[in-house]
Design a protein around this nucleic acid. Structure first.
Length: 804
DNA sequence: AGCACGCCGACT
DNA sequence: GTCGGCGTGCTC
């Protein structure tokens, strides 16, 4: 009988996006399992692959089939659930199956390939320069030749059959191990050994005597040295006598640095209890229900999560908690760690590759029961999931921007059906899509209207900056904000000032002609980096030194513009001498961990004002913050995005919620040039429903989600005309295939019309129901992959896109 | 995707 | 005659 493994190979391309059959050699049949990674020959090279099935027959002609060269995992790295999920993702997001599989694993388990040159003759027979390199070793990485400009010589040697090239799959992800001492269990034997030690070896005798108290234990040598004031020499001698031996033990790199204090359940409000009861009931009944937990800021959503998780753990199941990347602050993770201690793993982008791998292994090996992490943690390899929680459900970071373009919410719901467990989507300002589904009873709505400690929501005051201008106030602060700041300073309370800007980026502009330094390859301005006085493109990596004069008008009035935070800081210092400001932007948060340090310093009262962009809006929870100022509420309103109003409202509600979360009442001052806009007007009352109704009307009129679904097709090419032409062709073809109630808008130039020297066009598909959409798109992709791709066209499909 | 194979023009 | 350009097609 033969054993055949079906393998998805690590080659992201359309013609090979299917399983390939490989023969399993007899010695591997006991080890190989579905979900294992394997090394296989694929054409002329070796690649990594995932075993998706094992069977006993094959349709492939016997002369074609090759054997698996190596099994990389003793235990499978992917569960059956993951393999199924990958197939679903492939369909749902139109991606390669290999991409779907890879996204579920930490990058440490993905393959790294190296080309190795093997020496086939005597070194002396090689040309001079090559001899040099092959002197130390017969096998040399090809990039060594590249670095020394010896590629032509290497090529010649290959031709002469003096050297051969092999592709080697390197496995990343080293398990970190430490050497420990294992004391033998047999106490009698220890006593015998001790008796035989010469009286001159006092230290050894002492050590073995002490070991009798710790028979069978495994310990750190350092602990022994300290305990007995001894050294490695003595220990080695004792090990030689057979009283103990050295063992290698796996360790996890610990991303937590601080000690944690255990905390207990808080008392719940009536609203919280009602919500919790419903969720508990669903867990009990094993219903894959999706709850939308809508709670005003400070209403204690987290406490509901924590108690739900406690229940799940009690049932012997596991919990997944997703948090947007930027709110994955120590403050947030500590709440989970303090409740569940060592049972919690944390996953976020701040961890090193090794740390991520370690956290993943803790989950995989069942050492932890709770994972708190960003988007990709939704793939945590638990096998008995009891609850999945998405906090701040409306955040756009839950959607991955590149292939596989999945939404963590959709994956969570898929997994909940697989495990028959509920999902909780939590937010103060749910996405319109989720709220609409809750209204249609697709999700179950749970509402928390009151703050947990019954504090009133902060008073929001909207200030029209146009009036300030008329009054002759040309500063960044309105009269009213200045007064409020002064009051807090007098009362020694804290202030958060918020600049509504995206990210931390800054740019270089000529003050005479207004030219902003642009990337040569992309249609986007360069980002200024202070550390090396360079300007860099975040999309393609293009980099130049900051020029002395303007490239357009030769003026030397060229200046670096920050996010505006420096300017705000300067003005603050002018108006309020002695004010202590903590600024959070590119320059102050570059180093790893500086973000946390700044927040901690602010929490300790080392500053009066915390000043920053979006990043500070999330998760800040300090009792002494009583004033929040939004310096310009409208900047996010004018973005070319149909969600601009929604995002602005969410942001204003979010930042307002930072004030007065504890005993002291809070106040919010929102400065704007368009106070009449409903997103700003309605944020004053901080009530979600009126905003929802209003925004739904707008979406209905314009034909956007949740009334319509969207799909975005992007076409790019080095040549503008080609890009436009083929975008047109795609649109034309889609129009001919899809029904009349689907509207296809475009093609139009994309927001960033040129990226990495490629011109980009896009078209938007709006549809309510169109069962043929995915098959049609797949067919379009087929046309593209079989024909257009050769002409240098690039085409991508994003279902349910974030930005358009 | 990546790599070999294969068919045609320009060189020692 | 041979070297190397890149169009074509396959990968268990």
């Amino acid at each position: 009988m033969i054993t055949v493994a079906q393998v998805i190979v690590d080659v992201a391309a359309y013609p090979v996006d299917r399983p390939f059959d490989y023969l399993v050699p007899a010695e591997m049949t006991q080890i190989i399992e579905t979900g294992c990674r394997v090394k296989v020959p694929f054409g002329p090279r070796n690649v990594l692959g995932f075993v998706v099935a094992i069977k006993n027959e094959t349709d492939v002609p016997i002369e074609k089939i090759k054997p698996v060269s190596q099994v990389l995992d003793i235990e499978p790295v992917l569960t059956g659930e993951m393999l199924e999920l990958a197939k679903w993702l492939k369909n749902e997001t139109i991606c390669y199956e290999i991409d779907a599989l890879q996204v579920m694993l930490p990058s440490a388990l993905r393959a790294k390939y190296e080309k190795i040159a093997n020496l086939q003759t005597e070194v002396e027979l090689l040309p001079e320069p090559l001899q040099e390199i092959f002197r130390d070793s017969q096998q040399i990485n090809v990039n060594v030749f590249e670095k020394n400009n010896l590629l032509p010589q290497l090529k010649a040697a290959i031709k002469n059959k003096q050297v051969s090239i092999a592709n080697v799959v390197k496995q990343k992800g080293k398990v970190k191990e430490v050497r420990k001492v294992r004391i033998i269990e047999d106490n009698q034997m220890l006593a015998d050994i001790q008796a035989n030690i010469s009286n001159r070896a006092k230290k050894q005798k002492q050590l073995v005597e002490w070991m009798q108290l710790h028979a069978g234990e495994i310990m750190d040598p350092e602990v022994i040295y300290k305990e007995l004031e001894t050294s490695a020499q003595v220990l080695n001698a004792v090990v030689d006598l057979g009283a103990a031996d050295f063992v290698q033990e796996e360790v996890y790199r610990d991303p937590f640095t601080k000690e944690i204090k255990r905390t207990n359940f808080l008392n719940l409000t009536d609203e919280q209890s009602v919500a919790l009861d419903q969720i508990m009931n669903s867990i009990e009944e094993q219903e894959p229900k999706t709850f939308l937990l809508q709670g005003v800021t400070g209403s204690g959503k987290t406490e509901v999560y924590l108690q739900t998780i406690a229940k799940v753990l009690n049932d012997g199941k596991e919990a997944i908690v997703l948090v947007p990347e930027i709110s994955l602050t120590p403050q947030m993770t500590e709440r989970f760690r303090s409740r569940f201690g060592e049972l919690v793993a944390v996953m976020h982008s701040g961890l090193s590759v090794g740390e991520k791998y370690d956290e993943w292994r803790k989950i995989h090996q069942g050492k932890v029961k709770v994972v708190v992490g960003a988007r990709s943690a939704v793939f945590a390899p638990f096998e008995n999931v009891g609850i999945i929680i998405l906090d701040e459900e409306h955040e756009s970071t839950y959607k991955q921007e590149d292939s596989p373009r999945y939404h963590a919410r959709d994956v969570a719901i898929w997994r909940s059906k697989y495990h028959n467990c509920p999902v909780i989507l939590g937010s103060a300002t749910p996405s319109l899509e989720s709220f609409a589904r809750a209204k249609k009873n697709v999700y179950t709505l749970l509402t928390l209207k009151e703050r947990a400690l019954k504090q009133s929501l902060p008073k929001v005051q909207i200030v029209d900056m146009r009036d300030e201008l008329k009054k002759g106030n040309r500063s960044m602060f309105s009269q009213s904000l200045m007064e409020s700041i002064q009051i807090r300073l007098d009362k020694k309370e804290q202030i958060v000032l918020f600049l509504n800007r995206r990210g931390y980026s800054s740019f270089v502009m000529c003050r005479d002609c207004g030219t902003v330094l642009q990337c040569e390859n992309c249609d986007i301005s360069l980002t200024y980096h202070r550390k090396n006085e360079k300007c860099k493109c975040h999309y393609c990596g293009y980099e130049i030194h900051v020029p002395k004069t303007c490239p357009q008008c030769q003026s030397d009035h060229i200046r670096y513009f920050g996010t505006g935070t420096q300017k705000v800081e300067e003005e603050l210092a002018k108006f309020f001498p002695g004010i202590r400001v903590l600024r959070m932007d590119v320059d102050t948060t570059r180093a790893k961990g500086s973000h946390e340090q700044l927040l901690e310093a602010f929490g300790n009262g080392e500053a009066d004002v915390l000043l920053g962009t979006q990043m500070i809006a999330k998760g800040l929870d300090y009792p002494n913050i009583t004033l929040v100022g939004v310096l310009s509420a409208d900047t996010s309103l004018h973005l070319p995005d149909f969600r601009a109003a929604e995002k602005t409202f969410q942001l204003l509600t979010q930042v307002s919620g930072r004030a007065g979360r504890h005993e002291k009442p809070g106040e919010v001052v929102v400065q704007t040039y368009t106070p009449e806009h409903y997103a700003i007007e309605l944020s004053e009352a901080q009530e979600y429903d009126p905003f929802y109704e209003r925004e739904m009307q707008m979406r209905h009129q314009a034909g956007y989600p949740p009334y319509y679904y969207l799909a975005l097709i992007q076409v790019s090419h080095e040549d503008v005309l080609m890009a436009a032409d083929y975008a047109g062709k795609a649109v034309e073809w889609l129009r001919s295939q899809l029904s009349f109630n689907v509207s296809i808008i475009g093609p139009t130039a994309s927001g960033i019309s040129r990226l990495q020297n490629r011109y980009r066009y896009q078209c938007l598909i709006k549809y309510k129901v169109e069962p043929d959409l995915i098959p049609t798109l797949l067919q379009l992709i087929k046309i593209y992959r079989s024909d257009w791709i050769k002409k240098g066209i690039n085409l991508t499909v994003d279902l349910d896109p974030n930005m358009i």
